[in-house]
Design a protein around this nucleic acid. Structure first.
Lengths: 231, 231
DNA sequence: ACAAAAAAATGATATATGTCAACAATAAAA
DNA sequence: TTTTATTGTTGACATATATCATTTTTTTGT
């Protein structure tokens, strides 16, 4: 972790985005006591799976990938984080360890909030607690979706799903330039990078998408939807 | 749903098992207002994916399977419930719908608690809220584990994992008689029933397990562990 | 600008896994 | 009991997917 600053105007907190909007000014001050903002270079680790879970983080600039580290160096990317998403993990309050890793996929900034201060807020503010619960359960719904995609569809369906996720869920554009590697796209789709590359090329040859290196263009989104559904 | 009774001595609540032990007597009374116990026959649906999420349930007798219903009739079984496990789902408080189905795999009894009463307790009792959070996040950790098993291991590893889960996690015995079908075992392992059957037979031929119809015996648990790890 | 490293692309091949069809065994129903 | 339906089993086969080796392209560092 390169630089860290005790930032007083961090977008996630002072603008009261996310679930922080339910905190009172006093509670926000409490949170602000143990709060840091840290700058990350592309590729640097923000959370490390297995490491101590001492802070929740809020991405304030750039993007990061959240992924499970498997045994043989095989990873599953759960989601791409962008501003101003809050991220903790299921280790709170179970074992206070991280159960996934997060690394920056662009230059990024993250605001770190002490887990104990956070826990106090959950206990003190009912509305905050309920919103946090909602936040967690939305994530669980996404994981269920992911579990089905990855276990019940075959490669074409999974790549279609990943392309739609990137286009709609991450970059909010039919054209996007990504810093994700082909391996990352494979890790989002639970397959080898070779397979991912081949299917991307098939889609390109079929005129469903176009790309050169990291610039993607979704031509026939509706057809991707069909492929994603029929698996 | 066959019979339902307004039970006053339901094991999950009155014995204050699970997270209910953190409730005061008054709070417990509140919960008891809108509480029912229902008897299910094997195969009957307890929660239906997509249906309204009006009550959380606590299995008080028998067992049930929690599963995601896929498109082409392909299901993924997330877990087997036994007494006295509490089960809600990520629809609370997101959209108040069920995101998985639950069906009884034996004769079973479930205690239903009104979701609004439950929500009141979460809001009113901090400790209860934190325990509920812990409960949810433990489930999430299990799902992460499942996601990795099912996407990064091949069939032998997945079946080994399933056998260990049944032996250690469900029946707590090296010998167990299960009401799960081969299709269920396949749905726990993300493969077709034919594949599941073939691998079970291989394990039997290799002297790792033994079985006749639904009576299973784990002979070499350590070897199953190895297979499960090396995928 | 150059060399070195990393990422992307491609083809050949092996293997894992699903599909289909047939049949056996078991459980449920009449 | 006999019949019917469900579940389990097996084999032959098709196909999806990974692996490996090699080459090309892009990025990075000096």
């Amino acid at each position: 972790m390169a630089n860290f600053t005790k930032e007083t105007h961090c977008s996630c907190c002072n603008l009261k985005l996310n679930i922080f909007r339910f905190l009172t000014d006093d509670e926000m001050n409490e949170i602000n006591q143990g709060r840091y903002e840290v700058q990350f270079n592309k590729g640097e680790t923000i959370f490390k799976q297995g490491g101590p879970f001492t802070h929740v983080a809020c991405i304030t600039k750039g993007m990061a990938k959240v992924y499970l580290e498997g045994n043989k160096g095989k990873n599953v990317i759960l989601k791409i984080l962008k501003p101003t998403e809050l991220v903790g993990g299921p280790g709170f309050p179970v074992d206070y360890r991280h159960h996934f890793s997060i690394t920056a996929i662009t230059e990024a900034r993250a605001c770190f909030i002490d887990i104990h201060a956070f826990e106090q807020m959950v206990k003190a503010n009912q509305q905050f607690a309920m919103e946090f619960l909602k936040h967690l359960n939305k994530a669980t719904i996404n994981i269920y979706d992911k579990l089905q995609n990855l276990t019940q569809k075959q490669m074409h369906g999974r790549i279609a799903e990943t392309l739609l996720y990137l286009s709609k869920g991450v970059y909010s554009n039919m054209d996007f330039e990504t810093t994700l590697t082909r391996q990352d796209i494979a890790d989002l789709s639970a397959m080898t990078k070779e397979s991912a590359i081949r299917i991307l090329k098939e889609f390109k040859d079929d005129g469903i998408i176009d790309y050169t290196s990291n610039s993607f263009h979704i031509i026939k989104a509706d057809q991707l939807e069909v492929i994603s559904k029929t698996g």
